[in-house]
């Protein structure tokens, strides 16, 4: 697995478990165990949850304050449901880390960032063909977007730019 964010490759400090064996400092549990894991949490310990893309953002809403990470599975690169789940989580106030996990392609990196993801967890087979440099290049390739409210990194919003130009124009009159 390769973990990367907009700065490049990063170490994965999280441990994934399938049971309530939550001894590590940063633990990712399946959503079925989330409530129990949060109840058993030690002081200073961070809990994350891994969800399928058939699960709903609204189901996590009660735990937003206690959750440090949400991992959304992408079963294939071209199943884009996870982008909407991420967007919903952000729109509804989740401020922890958001991770996309699955065989995405680097061209989807800007989409993931724009929808609120912080990092991508890539299977080895994908990472071998698409090194980190390709992901960083992909994130910077389109420097503008039309969609207001989807802001990320170096991307400028066209409608905001036009609005600023209008205001500057009005101020100069």
């Amino acid at each position: 697995m390769l973990l990367l964010d907009r700065e490049g490759a990063k170490a994965d400090l999280w441990t994934r478990v399938e049971t309530l064996d939550i001894s590590a400092d940063k633990v990712i549990v399946p959503s079925a165990l989330l409530q129990d894991a949060l109840a058993a949490r030690r002081p200073g310990q961070q809990i994350g949850v891994a969800i399928d893309n058939t699960e709903r953002a609204a189901a996590l809403e009660p735990y937003f304050g206690a959750l440090a990470l949400v991992v959304i599975a992408f079963p294939t690169g071209y199943n884009g449901r996870g982008f909407s789940i991420a967007r919903q989580l952000r729109e509804r106030g989740f401020s922890g880390l958001l991770r996309a996990s699955g065989p995405l392609v680097s061209d989807q990196f800007p989409h993931a960032l724009a929808c609120g993801f912080d990092e991508i967890e890539l299977p080895d087979a994908s990472a071998e063909r698409q090194p980190v440099e390709q992901w960083l290049a992909a994130a910077a390739r389109i420097s503008l977007n039309y969609q207001r409210g989807y802001n990320y990194g170096a991307v400028a919003n066209i409608l905001e730019q036009r609005r600023a130009a209008r205001r500057a124009g009005a101020a100069n009159v």
Partner: peptide, 14 residues
Amino acid sequence: RQWSTLHPEFEWLG
């Protein structure tokens, strides 16, 4: 047209 162009959330629909 502009709104739907390269929409980050809706580039990978069903």
